[in-house]
Design a protein around this nucleic acid. Structure first.
Lengths: 334, 334
DNA sequence: CTGAAAGCGCTTACAG
DNA sequence: CTGAAAGCGCTTACAG
């Protein structure tokens, strides 16, 4: 079968028309008898004719491809974002180049150049934190660039999750369950997301209850629990964690101390990272950043830009959801 | 900057030569004075000229793109495979379309058609188990197809990990550490990989020691440990698990019973799934299937096929490595 | 109602 | 040593 694709010449010959007519028939342009148009389409289906996208691209200056650039090797953020982009764009006939560039500027440039050579219609830059840029210069590119979960330029469109709202949702949930001594165990304070989430926490519980900053790891969850339970005074009845990994460490540590979750302490995570949240005992109630939706929006936005529509620049903050499992007790969310 | 790319006409004008000469200069073909060639190249660099891949593709019938099709939504297998493919091919100027098709045949067809329209030079089909096919017909495509971690057609090239060798490596390691009562806790027997790994286990420990088949989950690790430790008779001193998730459940269950890992029991996992293996307490010694290498080989193979080189069809089984952490005790691997 | 021609941005015989 | 011409597979004014 290799190398034997039907071209528009084959189609025109088969249908007994000129290639111009064949082209117009398929594209529903030009004027011709309905009969001719139908006949061409029938033959096209019969011989399996599909127009060569490279030839079309040459004319239209549209390749119907976009590039997704990411430094998230792990895929925890990129995969759902990618899924959303792909889902939104496949209906428009656009395919997505995935380019993992780690934190290597040289590799980044190689990938960007390769994408530009292929005349991608646009680029989505994505990362793992909103306060860091990808190690590659994306300004002054001849194609539109949209940012998702990574820092963009001021004049560009950037998508990110609403950390404040998501965190507030989690803490409100604990409050709604009657929890009053709520602590916050989270990641490094250098992360913008960490500060935003802590702000939301503070805005609800006030300044008297403590937030503990550490690393994005299970072990930090263990350590934090040890520190809190080894200290004198009343213990928390609710813990809002900055990530599911931390939450898992916290839950494990509590179980090992004989503290019951959720009977004695309710625990909320952040990320809804299935592999962690669902396997924790009990499974974690956690905040979902709706990364797939975020990807979908980002995809639709580059597409709009590629088609020349104007899009308001700025940061688009998408709301988070709370996914209720068993680590908090209580009923389903309203 | 939008829409203002230099074409070969611009370059030719700038360098004061014809477009034929410009083209030949850049491609190091044709004959001309060294001076002319250098001058063209200098101007090309200066005005940032990069040939339009769509135009070249039209001539050469090469798009310098390939498609990676996968039904592994989770990315646990696909991501490392993708990384390997990308790494191997970026040096050849080829970019990779990632198409996640879940288990939806219709979606699969849409993606395959989109890729064919774009004249990908080849397709790599990848999945999450070697004894299942993707839900899409990849035979009689006008481009070469290579399979990675999913079942291929008999006349195609298929890459997979050597489950037998990997499992043998793990069990040998336990034996080398002086373990003698080794049990095997693994996934569903319906999986080819499970049977292969169990075979390897049997070939070393004989038929007297038991293998336990269950699901790919932590909870199954817990259950299996309960079943084994609640039964009368001597307990195992080594456990070879069919996945890291199972191993994590096993290790947690043992700790909760007061059985020390690795002092009393050595545990080996399978997958080297960082997020699980490294976060287990103690971190897991486990089998790594070298998926990145597998991806690299698959990438190089489609490329060879795309360039018309002939490649021997058949199943290529790549060796696994043992990654030593702390769940077994003992020294570093030879 | 339909087709011949020009052209998208390149490469590659071919001519001089 | 260099350039004019044809052509890859399409689309789109334009002519009839």
């Amino acid at each position: 079968m290799r190398g034997s694709r039907a071209t528009i010449h084959d189609l025109a010959a088969a249908a007994g028309v000129s290639i111009s007519t064949a082209s117009k028939a398929l594209n529903n342009t030009g004027r011709m008898s309905e009969e001719t148009r139908e006949r061409v389409k029938r033959f096209a289906a019969e011989i399996g004719f599909r127009p060569n996208a490279m030839a079309r691209g040459l004319l239209s200056n549209r390749s119907f491809t976009i590039g997704l650039l990411t430094n998230d090797t792990y895929g925890r953020f990129t995969l759902p974002v990618m899924a959303g982009i792909s889902e939104a764009l496949v209906d428009h006939g656009v395919s997505v180049f995935l380019c993992a560039i780690e934190d290597d500027p040289a590799l980044g440039k190689v990938h960007v150049d390769a994408m530009l050579d292929k005349h991608v219609d646009g680029i989505i830059a994505s990362g793992k934190r909103v306060d860091r840029r990808l190690p590659v210069d994306l300004s002054n590119l001849p194609v539109p660039v949209v940012y998702a979960f990574t820092e963009g330029t001021p004049d560009s469109v950037t998508f990110c999750a609403n950390d404040f709202q998501g965190a507030a949702r989690a803490v409100d949930w604990l409050i709604g369950l009657g929890r009053r001594r709520i602590v916050h165990i989270t990641g490094p304070e250098t992360f913008f997301s960490v500060r935003k989430r802590a702000e939301a926490y503070r805005s609800i519980v006030g300044d008297d209850l403590p937030a503990f900053y550490g690393t994005w790891s299970e072990i930090w969850g263990h350590e934090a629990v040890a520190r809190i339970w080894n200290a004198p005074g009343p213990k928390p009845d609710g813990i809002f964690c900055g990530s599911d990994q931390i939450a898992r460490g916290v839950v494990d540590a509590l179980r090992e101390r004989g503290v019951r979750v959720p009977a004695d302490v309710s625990v909320v995570g952040f990320d809804n990272w299935e592999i962690v949240a669902a396997e924790t005992r009990p499974p974690l109630t956690t905040v979902d950043m709706n990364l797939k939706t975020l990807g979908r929006e980002a995809g639709l936005t580059v597409l709009a830009l590629a088609e020349g529509r104007t899009v308001e620049p700025g940061i688009r903050t998408l709301p988070c959801d709370l996914i209720v499992r068993q680590s908090c007790g209580g009923e389903q969310p309203r």
